[in-house]
Simulated scan of single mutants.
Amino acid sequence: MADVRLWTLLTRHNVDGPAVMREQLRHLLEVGRRPRVHLHLVPREVGAYPGLNGAFVIATPADGDDVAYLDNPLQGTVVERATDVLSLRQSWESVRAEAMSHRQTLSVMSEAAEAWT
């Protein structure tokens, strides 16, 4: 099983009402407490950072080289070329350098979930 790392922006936009927002955050908290899942928020004060270029996932299969998946509103793309995966990994490390720790992230998300009442 690959080590899965998730990153997300914590938004304050009200989508479908406070109850939905609260439950979405609680669900993310539940997932974030799993042993192989790490959530990391990037504080707003950071401003522009590489994670704003779009979502991607990097997977490390037990029996092969890293692969990545890019997603946008029109299509998803599997990335297998080693130099491209390396570039995405470097982007990920840049995001992590700006992000809060996993523990801090869970704390902020917990507070945000309770604020949606």
Rank of each mutant, 00 (worst) to 15 (best):
M1A: 14
A2D: 12
D3G: 09
D3L: 13
D3A: 13
V4R: 07
V4H: 04
V4C: 06
R5K: 14
R5W: 06
R5L: 11
T8K: 04
L9T: 13
L10E: 04
H13R: 13
H13T: 11
H13G: 03
D16V: 01
D16R: 09
D16P: 01
G17M: 06
G17L: 04
G17P: 06
P18D: 12
A19Q: 08
V20L: 09
M21T: 01
R22K: 11
R22G: 02
R22E: 04
Q24D: 05
L25P: 00
R26D: 02
R26A: 02
H27Q: 06
L28Q: 01
L28H: 02
L28R: 01
L29I: 13
L29R: 00
L29P: 00
L29F: 01
E30M: 01
G32C: 02
R33K: 11
R34F: 02
R34V: 01
P35Q: 03
P35L: 02
R36W: 08
V37S: 02
H38D: 06
H38S: 10
L39T: 01
H40A: 08
L41Q: 03
V42K: 02
V42N: 01
V42R: 01
P43V: 11
E45N: 07
G47V: 07
A48W: 15
Y49E: 14
P50C: 11
P50H: 13
G51F: 10
L52C: 11
N53I: 04
N53M: 11
N53Q: 15
G54I: 05
A55N: 09
A55W: 05
A55L: 08
F56T: 00
I58M: 04
T60R: 14
T60F: 04
P61D: 07
P61W: 07
A62F: 05
G64A: 09
D66E: 15
D66T: 07
V67K: 06
A68I: 06
A68S: 06
L70H: 04
L70I: 05
L70A: 04
D71N: 10
N72G: 14
P73G: 07
L74H: 14
L74I: 07
L74M: 13
Q75V: 08
T77G: 01
T77L: 14
T77D: 05
T77K: 12
T77Y: 10
V78A: 11
V78I: 15
V79P: 03
E80H: 13
T83M: 11
D84C: 04
V85P: 02
V85S: 06
L86Y: 09
L86W: 08
L86D: 15
S87L: 14
S87A: 15
L88I: 12
L88G: 02
R89D: 08
Q90A: 14
Q90D: 13
S91N: 10
S91V: 14
S91R: 15
S91L: 14
W92R: 07
W92E: 06
E93G: 00
V95Y: 12
R96F: 12
R96N: 01
A97R: 14
A97W: 13
E98K: 15
A99L: 08
M100I: 02
S101C: 08
S101E: 05
S101V: 09
R103I: 09
R103H: 11
Q104L: 03
Q104D: 15
T105V: 06
T105G: 03
T105Y: 02
L106A: 06
S107E: 10
S107K: 03
S107Q: 09
M109F: 03
M109V: 15
S110Q: 13
E111P: 00
A112Q: 11
A113N: 06
E114C: 05
T117G: 12
